[in-house]
Design a protein around this nucleic acid. Sequence first.
DNA 1: AAATGAGGTCACGAGGTCAT
DNA 2: ATGACCTCGTGACCTCATTT
Lengths: 553, 553
Amino acid sequence: MDNNSGGVILYVGSTAGSSPTPGSPPTGYLVPSPQHSLPSSLEELTLTEIGAIKPPRASSPSSPKVAFQFPEGIRYPSKGQSPPAPSRVSAAKQNGATGTFTKTGGMVLLCKVCGDIASGFHYGVHACEGCKGFFRRSIQQNINYKMCVKNENCMIMRMNRNRCQHCRFKKCLAVGMSRDAVRFGRIPKREKQRLLDEMQSYMNSLNEAPMDVGLSPEADAPPSPNAQEEEAISAISRAYHDIFVNGQDRLGKPEGSPRRGEACPATNYNEQQLNGSYSYGQPYESANHRVSSYSPQEPPPSYVDNGPRCFGNEIFQAQQASYLQNAGRYPAFEYGYPEANPQRGCPWRGTTSRGIACPLNATPYCSNGKTSQQVWEEFSQCFTPAVKEVVEFAKSIPGFQSLCQQDQVMLLKAGTFQVLMVRFSSLFSPKEKVVTFLSGETYSLCSLRTMGMGSLLDAMFEFSEKLSSLALDAQEMALFMAVVLVSADRSGISDVDAVELLQETLIRALRTLVTKKHPDDSTLFPKLLLRLPDLRTLNNQHSEKLLAFRINP
Amino acid sequence: MDNNSGGVILYVGSTAGSSPTPGSPPTGYLVPSPQHSLPSSLEELTLTEIGAIKPPRASSPSSPKVAFQFPEGIRYPSKGQSPPAPSRVSAAKQNGATGTFTKTGGMVLLCKVCGDIASGFHYGVHACEGCKGFFRRSIQQNINYKMCVKNENCMIMRMNRNRCQHCRFKKCLAVGMSRDAVRFGRIPKREKQRLLDEMQSYMNSLNEAPMDVGLSPEADAPPSPNAQEEEAISAISRAYHDIFVNGQDRLGKPEGSPRRGEACPATNYNEQQLNGSYSYGQPYESANHRVSSYSPQEPPPSYVDNGPRCFGNEIFQAQQASYLQNAGRYPAFEYGYPEANPQRGCPWRGTTSRGIACPLNATPYCSNGKTSQQVWEEFSQCFTPAVKEVVEFAKSIPGFQSLCQQDQVMLLKAGTFQVLMVRFSSLFSPKEKVVTFLSGETYSLCSLRTMGMGSLLDAMFEFSEKLSSLALDAQEMALFMAVVLVSADRSGISDVDAVELLQETLIRALRTLVTKKHPDDSTLFPKLLLRLPDLRTLNNQHSEKLLAFRINP
DNA sequence: AAATGAGGTCACGAGGTCAT
DNA sequence: ATGACCTCGTGACCTCATTT
Ligand SMILES: [Zn+2]
Ligand SMILES: [Zn+2]
Ligand SMILES: [Zn+2]
Ligand SMILES: [Zn+2]
C-alpha cells in the first residue's frame, strides 16, 4: 500500500466537511465550502473533517476545511493554525506534532517516521515538521547521537520520538530519508494521480475487505478513523439487516444458531448474566454493588474489530421493512410463553397468552384475570426473543466484542430496552394514539392505559413520535441503535474508557452517515443525540414500573 | 485533556508593545492594543491579585510584574514578524527573587499543581519551575516517596507543596503531567489564540457588557438568524456570571434577596410550586398523577459546593480559582488545610448547624446522632439557595419566561438537579476521588460513602470527570447549563413544542459557541450532548436515593 | 503564477546545575 | 531535596529556490 511515496493515507472524503465554519452560522455541520464546488475530479476532493477526535482544523472561514484524524489516540492538546491563504492548509494538530500539511487531493498523509501528520514530502519521504527538522539538523551538523540506552529498537512514535535520538535517526534513514532524495517543485501531475489512485483503492479495499488491520507496511499506521467509520457503518447496517430484518423469523426461537456463522464469533454470555428474566434497564441500585471497591477488571481496550465486514450501503427502508417482512412469518407457538399465544403480528406475540401477557396486547378485555404485576412480568418476558437479537446485534458492532465480557453484559443490561424501544418505535402511531401490531390490528392508547402503563406508554408514544419525525432510513436506524446501546448507563462498567472510545467511534460514524444523507439538515444529528436522554428516562420508568410491581403488586 | 492545559490565566496589564523592561514596574498597563481594550480597572485588579498570590516572595514587594500587550494574536504579521514582546519575561529580579515565566499574550498562567505562577507548559501541563523539577526528578529516578502521613489528600499549594511528596506527585499525575504529554517547540498559533479568546470571553463575562461578542470592527450589525443565538449566548453568559459567579456569596444564606435586582425580572413562582422542599428531579410519576406506584417526592441534589469558584475550565482551575478569587478576602490562613476550618466555604454553611446538616460535612465524625435520612433531608435543604439561583438563571434564559408558568415549573423541577450537578461538578476531583470544598478541605469518596451515597457518588464522580475533561470555559458552561435545563424530562409539560423550540435554539447556540471556541475539535459538541443522558440517570438515581430514605430510612 | 519543499528562525520546554 | 537559571534540542512557521 502506500509505499514508495511513503506515508500512510489517512483520510479523504468528499463529503462535505463537517467542521463547522468557525464563526459562521452554526448550522452547519457539513456545509461544504462555498467556493469549492464539488467534485469529481481528484483535485477537487476536499478534505472533510473527520469527525474525529480532535481533529479538524478549520482554517479561515472560507477555506475548505480539512480534517483528519488522528490515529493514535488518546489525548492530545490541539493545535493548528489558520493561514488565510488557501493553498497551504494548516491542519490542526493534536499533540505537539503538527504542522501545516498539504492536502493532496483530499488526503492526509502521515509521517513515515513517527506517524504524526506529515507536512509534506521531505528528503524523499512524507514526514512531519518535527522529523523533517530533526533529520535536517542531523545531517547538517554531522551529529553523533549518543547510543541508545535500550536495544536500539525503540519504537518511534509521535509521543516518544524525542526520547531516543539514536533510534529516531535510524528510523529516518530506514524509511528512506536522504539528502539526495529531495524533490523540488510542484508535484508532477502523474505522481498526484498515482497517489489518488492509491488512496482510492485503499478506500475501496476497506469496504470490500476490512481486514486491513495488520496489512499496513509500517507497523505504526493506525487505521484511519475514517476507515473505521466506514467499516462501522457497513458492519452495523448489515447486522441490522441480517438480524432485525431478515432474521426476524428467528424471533422467539428458544435457541438461536449463531447468526451467519461468521458474524457471530464466539462469545456467549453466561446465561446467568444476561438471560432468563431479563431485567434490562438501568442496573442501578442492583448492579451497583460495585459500590466502594472497584471491580478489578481490566479489559484492554484494544480495538480490532471482529465484526462482520461490511458491504455496501444499500439503503434499507427500515422499520417498515421488518414489519412487512415478518408479517405472517412466525409460527405463533415459537414464542412459547406462559400462557398461549394471542395475537399475531405482535413481535412478542407468541409470548403471551391470549391477550394477556404481552402488554401491547393488553387491551382491556385482555387483562382478564391477571394482576398488573403478572402482566408486567410477562411483558418483560415477552422480550426474550427480541433481546437475543439485540445481543447478536451488539456482537456485530465492530469493537463491541473487544470489551470485556462483564462490560458487554452491563451495556446490554442497561441498553437493551432502549434498543428495543427504538426498534419497535414504529409500532407506535403517535398521531392516532394507537399501537399497531404486525397483524395489522391497532390498539388505542386509552385501552392500553387501563393496564396501568399510562405514563410509560405516554412517554413511549412521545418518543416514537419524535423519532419517527426524523424519518431515519435503515442504515441510520442501525447506527443509531448501536449508539444507543453503547450510550447506556455506565454503572458497573469496569473499563469505562474503552466503552467511551467505542461510543465515540460510533457517534462519529453516525454523524458521518447522517451528514452524508442529509447534508441540508444539520440539526438532525443533534436531534438524534437528544433522543438519548429520553431513552434513559424511558428506561428508568420501565425499570421502575417493573420494580414497583414486584415490590408492591 | 489536551489543551487546556490547565492553569489559571491571570490577566495582567498590557502595555502597547512595550516589552516590559525587566525590573521595571509594571505600571505601564494601559494602552491596550487597538482592538482589545479592556477595562483598566480590571487590569489593576488583577495585578493586585498577583501580588497577593505571591506574597512570600519576599524580596520584591512590588513585583507584580509583567505586562504586555495583547498579542497580536489576531493579526498575522506576514512578513518579518516583530515580536514586540520578548517572550521570556524575566520578572523583576533584583534580589534574586524572581522567576522567568512566560506570558502568553497578556496573561499569566498558574501552576496546575500548586497554584504558583507557571513558568511554562511542562510535561503537558502548565506548571511552575518547582513542580516541573519535582516531577522530572520523580520520573527520572523512579522514586518511591514515603507514604503520606495524613490521608493522602493533602492540598498542594505553593506554600506547602514541599510538605508531602507523596501527595505532590499524586497531584502532578492527577493534573495530567506525563512524559507522554510533553510538547516541544513553539506554541501553535491556534492554541495561543484559543487561550486568548478564552481569556477574552472571561474578561467579557466579567463585564456586564453583554454585547461584547462581536466587538470586532466589522461585526455585522444586521440581525442575522444568528442574532438570536448571539443574544442567547451573551444573555446566558451574563446571567451565569451574575448569578453563579458573583452571586456566590449568597449561597447558603437562608433567605436571599433577589439577585441583583434587575436580573430578576418579575415572575415569581408560586411558593407551592417550586419552593420549600424542592422536589426537583424527574417529575415523572409525581407530577403527573399518572401512574401508579411511586410517591412523588424528590429531593435535592446533593453536592456541594462551594462554590463559586469554579468557572469554567481553562480559565479557572477550580481550586486555584477559589484561591484567587478569595485572595485578599480571606485571611491567608484560611486556605490552610483540612484540619483548619471546616466550615467556611461550604455553601450551605449557614443552613446547617455546626458540622451536622451539611452532607458534605458528613464525614464519619460529623454524622453524629443523625440518621442517614435526616442528613439527607437536610442535605436537600441545603440546596435551597442554590436552587433559587437556578431559578433565576432559568428566568434569564431568553425565551424561558415565554413558556407558560406550569412548564417553567416542570422544567425546573425536572432539571434543577441536573443544572446543579453541572454547576458543581468541578468540586469533584475524580482523580483523587475527593470532593473539594471552598475551604480547601477535601473529603474522600470513602468517607462520604459512609453516608450511604455510594453509587450515586460514584456516578457523580464519573460525570464530573467526563465533564471536566471537556474543559469548558465559563461561557460554554453557561450555555450548557441552559441546554441541560430545557432538555429535562418533558413529563408534565403542556406545550412540548414550545419547549422543543427553545431547546433547539439553545442547542444551536451551544453549537455555535463551541464550534467557535474549538474549531479544531468537532467532537466536543456531540460529547456535550452525550452528557445529557448521564444527567438524566443521575437525576433518577438521586431521586430514588431520596425516596429510598424516605421509605426506608 | 502556483505549488511545494529545503533551510532558516526563534519561541519553547526537557534537563542539567548548583546555591540554598 | 528544592527550584531559579541555563543550555540546547525541538518543531511551528516563514522565506525562497525550484519545478510544473
Ligand atoms: Zn515524524
Ligand atoms: Zn533507542
Ligand atoms: Zn507548582
Ligand atoms: Zn499527603
